[in-house]
Design a protein around this nucleic acid. Structure first.
Length: 414
DNA sequence: TCTGGGGTCCTAGGACCC
DNA sequence: TCTGGGGTCCTAGGACCC
């Protein structure tokens, strides 16, 4: 009763889209960097990282997560391109439409990756591989970019197959081939085993998936708790997580930003807090959520990062309530240094009952918020905002990577 | 020359309640 | 005399992902 799962992973997605839409970038080493305008200082982007390097750039060792100086160091002719998230989100939505012509069971896992359960539908097209080839062709025809497709009995193996075959590949790991394929595979290669866990497993003498699969369950469970159960299964190439459409309900909505420069000044800090609170509140209102917990994230120049949260008495998505809570929290902290990054988030979300409050004051406030949102929808973020909000040198709408193209997770509030 | 931003899930200790 | 055992909520932090 094995399922057939397909993983579609775009090759260097952002970079490929840029190279396709800007032909002069074709064949060149390019790196797509953070799109938020606040990274712009004196006309060039600072304090950002490379989100995607083209394959030409990867040949020089340019990697995701490098800052621009590191990238330029290993590849002096590297061309930096500021990302255009709306373009990627649009492409992602169109890609989903392509996938849906092959099966209704599509999970858009991130902006450049999707899982498809084709168990029930691949017969209509021939074999799992013909489905894979047809998707690759459709993507190429429509957008001129390549992807790699992995097929397997579950998401773990499908994902592994696509990782193995990158770029522009197609690989089917059949159930009977799973064991041999992963026997000598370093555990770090598995989706879900990161730096820490692989280091711990390493100290236990476990380096490969084969070894992991042979460790008694009790040993892993004692060491890792509930994760240990999952690890054992992963070592055996098993994964029973289903392909699921995007859940309707988000758990949290947050925004954070590395500031153009480190700041001490409370007025400046407050201005950013208001701005972040507004982004959070607006996204919550837009998607019909209210939340009960406000968290503030702070990063110091030395990169120490911590968060402090506060549970409210009532659910809210009111910018001003979020803002006041964020200020409450920061007032309770003795700042030891300047601030490099600020973040505000709203969690313990639930659906806004969308009914008008019985209290007149609250009703007026709600309609004010709606009016402001409408104006901002029409004329752009921060056209209309609260009195004390004003930040020099950085007055742009922050657009951060939208890892999902639609719904709550679409960060490009519009 | 430094090091983004969006999430999810899990843990563990303390408060508080019955 | 000395110390239960459930449960939930709250908070901070850390693992993972793209």
């Amino acid at each position: 009763m094995s399922r057939i799962t397909l993983c579609v992973d775009m090759d260097a997605f952002f970079a490929s889209v840029e190279q396709k839409t800007k032909p002069y970038l074709k064949g060149k080493p390019i790196a797509v960097i953070g799109s938020a305008m606040h990274h712009m200082v004196h006309g060039s982007a600072k304090r950002t990282v490379i989100t995607t390097a083209s394959y030409e750039a990867r040949a020089y060792g340019v990697k995701t997560g490098m800052n621009i100086y590191e990238g330029k160091k290993v590849c002096p002719q590297l061309i930096l391109v500021i990302g255009d998230n709306e373009k990627y989100a649009y492409t992602c939505m169109e890609l989903e439409r392509i996938y849906l012509t092959f099966t209704p069971d599509v999970e858009v896992y991130s902006i450049d990756e999707a899982f498809l359960d084709i168990t029930a539908s691949y017969h209509l097209f021939g074999s799992p591989e013909t489905v894979g080839m047809a998707i690759k062709k459709a993507v190429k025809d429509r957008f001129g970019i390549t992807c790699t497709i992995g097929i397997g009995p579950n998401k773990l193996i499908a994902k592994l197959a696509s990782d193995i075959q990158k770029p522009d590949g197609l690989k089917w790991i059949k159930p009977e081939d799973v064991r041999d394929t992963i026997e000598d595979l370093p555990i770090k290669e598995l989706w879900g085993i990161g730096q820490k866990i692989s280091a711990i497993l390493g100290t236990m003498g476990i380096k490969t998936c084969g070894e992991l699969g042979r460790i008694p369950l009790s040993v892993l469970r004692n060491r890792f708790g509930i994760i240990g159960i999952r690890l054992k299964a992963m070592g055996l190439g098993l994964d029973d997580s289903p392909v699921t459409r995007e859940p309707e309900d988000a758990k949290s909505i947050g925004h954070s930003m590395t500031l153009p420069k480190d700041i001490w000044d409370r007025r400046e800090i407050d201005a950013y807090l208001l701005r972040l609170s507004e982004m959070v509140g607006r996204r919550a209102r837009k998607n019909g959520f209210i939340g009960k917990v406000i968290s503030l994230v702070i990063r110091y120049p030395d990169f120490e990062t911590f968060s402090k949260q506060k549970t409210l008495k009532d659910f809210t998505n009111d910018t001003h309530v979020i803002y006041l809570s964020a200020m409450d929290i920061i007032n309770s902290i003795r700042l030891r240094d300047k601030i490099r990054l600020l973040g505000v988030s709203l969690s313990t979300l639930t659906r806004d009952p969308l009914q008008l409050s019985l209290f007149k004051e609250s009703r007026r406030r709600k309609s004010l918020l709606q009016t402001m949102d409408r104006i901002n929808d029409r004329y752009g973020d921060f056209t209309l905002t609260w009195g004390s909000y004003k930040i020099q040198e950085d007055n742009s709408g922050v657009i951060s990577p939208a890892w999902r193209p639609s719904g709550v997770r679409c960060v490009n509030v519009k």
